[in-house]
Simulated assay, not measured.
Amino acid sequence: MRVPSRSPGHQSGPPSPAGRHPRVAARPRSADGPDLDAYREAVGELLVEVGALAAASSTKARQVLIDQRLREPAITAVLDDTPQGAIGARETLLLEMARYQPNARSSASDLAALVRIYLLSRIDVMWWRDASTFVTDAEVHHSTQLVDLEWLRRRGLLKFRYTEQPRTVLGRGVRAVRRRVLPDATPRTAGLLFRRARREVVALLNDIAREFSAATVVGTPPLWVTSLVRSAEHQYRLRRLGYAAMLPSGHCLGWAVDVEMAWHQRFGARDTLAGILLDRQRAGELNVIDEGQAWHICLAPSATRRLRRAYEAEMGA
């Protein structure tokens, strides 16, 4: 099974509109941008060393390691092109590591996973450094940049599935009963708080869902989305609950998505979906992060024009 957090190539192993923050002035960058293959490879090597220093007594050694490795050109090239810069990213990562407490909710099962998620998510932030953050829940609900998924779903225009978070005590009770009676009928996910997404992201998910359906046997469930756009307000709520919700985040910019992976293992389709996502990463269309049960994907700016045209053609917009 290929793991997106170690390198961009094939690998074998276990599966693993108002009230926004002001834009940050863009720094000069090369025409082609940093070498993301080299960055992912350097991050993968760093993770091996972090794993070897997992003991609590190795805190100082881990800090020295982070200090040294984040100065490597392949890593600095990406981090220096984020709003925080390389120094700010280093300080944030060290703070995240110092605060880290493993828990069942977090996709960061250990310190190495935390480092992997943070560093690979910086690709999202680098790509979308000039995008505005959805700061509050109200901004997400009222933004004209986002479309209502339920409106599209009811018209049969979505090829993927999702579930919403129950809003009432009754709704939560019904969800709990359904899970007891049919525990594997759907993924074990809290569901979407915001059923809204950018048009380009809808087109991307429809495209992936069609490819996934064509590559799997009849009866395989469709692509399942577990998280889309989030407000920074909600991201802080998730952090307080113990989730590995990074800041800044591609979710809070509207360009990142989490898709269910573990549930598809029951149907023998997890590897197929992983291959589709990693192929798109190699093509430069996505950034992919293995977060265990779900994989995080973020759309690259270079793919937005094509996907916007695809959305308009498909939806008759």
Score class of each variant (00 low, 15 high):
Gln11Met: 13
Gln11Asn: 07
Pro15Thr: 06
Ser16Phe: 11
Pro17Thr: 13
Ala18Pro: 03
Arg20Lys: 10
Pro22Val: 05
Pro22Lys: 05
Val24Pro: 06
Ala25Thr: 09
Arg27Gln: 08
Arg27Glu: 09
Pro28Ser: 04
Arg29Pro: 04
Asp32Trp: 05
Asp32Pro: 00
Asp32Cys: 06
Asp32Met: 11
Gly33Tyr: 00
Pro34Asp: 09
Pro34Leu: 03
Leu36Met: 08
Ala38Cys: 05
Ala38Lys: 05
Ala42Leu: 05
Glu45Ile: 01
Leu47Ala: 05
Val50Ala: 06
Ala52Asp: 13
Ala55Phe: 09
Ala55Ser: 13
Ala55Leu: 14
Ala56Trp: 07
Ala56Val: 07
Ala56Gln: 14
Ala56His: 08
Lys60Tyr: 08
Ala61Ile: 01
Ala61Lys: 15
Arg62Asn: 10
Gln63Glu: 14
Val64Leu: 13
Leu65Cys: 04
Ile66Asp: 06
Asp67Gln: 09
Leu70Ala: 09
Glu72Met: 10
Ala74Leu: 09
Thr76His: 14
Asp80Phe: 00
Thr82Ile: 03
Thr82Ala: 06
Thr82Phe: 00
Gln84Asp: 14
Ala86Trp: 04
Gly88Ile: 00
Ala89Thr: 03
Leu93Asn: 10
Leu95Val: 05
Glu96Gly: 01
Glu96Cys: 06
Pro102Ser: 02
Asn103Arg: 01
Asn103Ser: 09
Ala104Cys: 06
Ala104Phe: 05
Ala104Trp: 09
Ser106Glu: 11
Ser106Lys: 12
Ser107Pro: 06
Ser107Phe: 01
Ala112Thr: 11
Ala113Asp: 15
Tyr118Thr: 03
Leu120Arg: 07
Arg122Ser: 12
Asp124Ile: 02
Val125Asn: 11
Met126Asp: 03
Met126Ser: 07
Trp128Gly: 00
Arg129Asn: 10
Asp130Gln: 13
Ser132Phe: 02
Val135Trp: 04
Asp137Glu: 15
